[in-house]
Design a binder for these strands. Sequence first.
DNA 1: AATGGCCTCAACCGCATCGCC
DNA 2: TGGCGATGCGGTTGAGGCCAT
Length: 261
Amino acid sequence: MGRQPCCDKEGVKRGPWTAEEDKKLISFILTHGRCCWRAVPKLAGLLRCGKSCRLRWTNYLRPDLKRGLLSTAEEQLVIDLHAKLGNRWSQIAAKLPGRTDNEIKNHWNTHIKKKLIKMGINPATHQPLANSKAAPSHSTGTDESAKSSDTREELSLKDDNHHREVPLSTDSSEQSSWPEPGSNVGDQDPELLVNWPSETDLSVDESWLGFMSNGNELGDVEGTSPWDGTTDWLLDYQDFGMCSSNLVDDSMFRASNGLNF
DNA sequence: AATGGCCTCAACCGCATCGCC
DNA sequence: TGGCGATGCGGTTGAGGCCAT
């Protein structure tokens, strides 16, 4: 991609991951759990740097990930949290079950930002654009949260179901309704999302552990499982309830799945 | 059907932070 | 306390897909 390699070692593969590489990585983490990422590629037989492995796991292979567009409730929560936290994507992601910082960051930049601008809201300051011109633009949002909450109350999120065809009108009547992209599991009270077990203790959250076995959650959000498509082999892991991740203690995971290693 | 432009998102880089010695 | 390595985080890039013409 036209950049210097992050790893100066020659022979380190870069670019999109293949199904075979995914398989090796998951197989390794299944067997050994998450250990030091530096050692993972060597031990797993991957020609990747540890950083790349970690990102691949965190952003794509983790079994607890939701896929698909963020729901209206999730978007509202992201906006709310962004007003408070600024561009601290990892902290924002921690409040949204099954979402990664990378995913939220991308969604913010490609969808939410545009919606806010369209509504006359400065996405950096969460203030009306007219006012924000005079105000210094920064994204820390520390002292903006109180004020921005007011604007957010009026800011009834609109979802351009088809995100390409966004009317440029800033008509207030349009702002008053943000049609659902199909009701889905994410349309729960944002408060519930905030209080999701990530903030408490996932390792003892049985409902979370349960989703792996019922297999419905991943596909719930009008999206696809991270393991669909060409990675059919991954279904094998889902079949026996693979759920090892940084969110779940590996030993517990192994125990819960009857794995003995 | 071809093509050019736009959009999305996976993956990258570089810096910050943390923990160990 | 400073150095060093490992990991985490946020910004950025670009390949590939989608849409309009």
